[in-house]
Nucleic acid binder design. Structure first.
Lengths: 206, 206
DNA sequence: GTCTATAAGTGGATAGAC
DNA sequence: GTCTATCCACTTATAGAC
């Protein structure tokens, strides 16, 4: 394990550092949103200096776009891979839908893909990021419809469930799981048996 | 009608001014989010000076909380009133659900209630606003469950649909209705016959 | 590849006049 | 009830050293 107290970051290849920053950025932007997060917070989370973050990506906006792109790609891969699996292909529609739903919840637990996406969806007003986010959303819609063989209404319902999950996460409703009965009921029926995944903030290991 | 070019706002009662500011804030925060919006933008939208906005509400944060509270109350009233109507009570569950869905879309068209709420749901990390937003969400959940007589799963599905609508709005997906076939399909099946409501930004009349 | 120093700009909030 | 002036903190981005 790396020491926590080092004041200068070790010298590592740019490509690797890039990934580290993207991971850190996913966590920070995912929690605080684009406007609410600072490049300095990202830098601290990544263990480097703020100017280096900016230098690596050119600007805060470009960093966020990279993040959105990466998150979208991972989501695409995941859904695509799930739909391509033989056991899944063998299921009926209803079964495939449920399987996809669980795959989405899995994604939530593994890395900070979902949160940055959710934050991006709020930025429709931004000329650059908004365009990006809309396109990404539509890519996922088409993937589900075409590769999944679902009707528009079915895709809509699936997306709707995803948006509820996103909302509960960004709201940090999980904080109330232990103390509020209503929250527990809602979370339970939104996340199903996979509820445990979201119940503890998993510290991101490097 | 009031002249647009006046450089000083006319002297009006504080209570009335308050409402104006809240209306303006709903539009600005709804579009740009809490962190992304400035008190100066709110002030300009309301036709007054930036310090006056701050003075009236104490701080940006308090203004936003007021906004959230007001939005929540209006949503509550609306849903509650809809559920209390005799024609609605006479409907079966499925019918009530559909009616509520349309009532929600109506709300989108009438005033800026939905957008600020949606933006608030992204602020779970904020100690003050997050608490507020979570509570509001749960209030609506309970209202639907108890006054509507729905099961948790039914309420979940209703809320999910609402979150999809929120997302499409904050994404400004409606911008693509005219130019992108996929977007048209998605919007069509998310908003149903009420799609017209969201297709033109209605300028807020005073 | 990474940092320190810092410029330049923005935004929330306060003070006090009218 | 409303404004002008202004302070101060914060944030992004640049320059240049190591």
């Amino acid at each position: 394990m790396s020491s926590v107290s080092e004041t200068k970051a070790e010298r590592i290849p740019a490509a690797q550092r890039r990934e580290q920053i993207l991971d850190a950025a996913a966590a920070v932007f995912g929690e605080r949103g684009y406007a609410g997060a600072t490049t300095d917070q990202v830098a601290q989370a990544a263990g480097i200096s703020q100017p280096y973050v900016v230098r690596m990506f050119g600007s805060k906006e470009k960093l966020f776009c990279e993040l959105l792109l990466r998150a979208r790609q991972r989501l695409e891969e995941r859904l695509s891979a799930a739909l391509a699996r033989p056991e899944v292909k063998a299921l009926d529609k209803q079964g495939r839908k449920q399987f996809l739903g669980r795959a989405y919840v899995d994604l939530v637990g593994e890395a900070d893909i979902v949160l940055p996406l959710a934050q991006g969806f709020l930025l429709g007003h931004d000329p650059v990021i908004g365009k990006y986010a809309r396109e990404g959303f539509l890519v996922i819609y088409r993937l589900l419809r075409d590769e999944g063989g679902f009707t528009p209404e079915e895709v809509r319902d699936f997306l709707a469930g995803g948006m509820l999950i996103n909302t509960l996460l960004t709201l940090q409703m999980t904080e109330l799981y232990g103390s509020d009965e209503t929250a527990r009921e809602l979370l339970g029926c939104a996340f199903g048996e996979k509820i445990d995944i979201v119940l503890h903030d998993a510290g991101t290991a490097s």
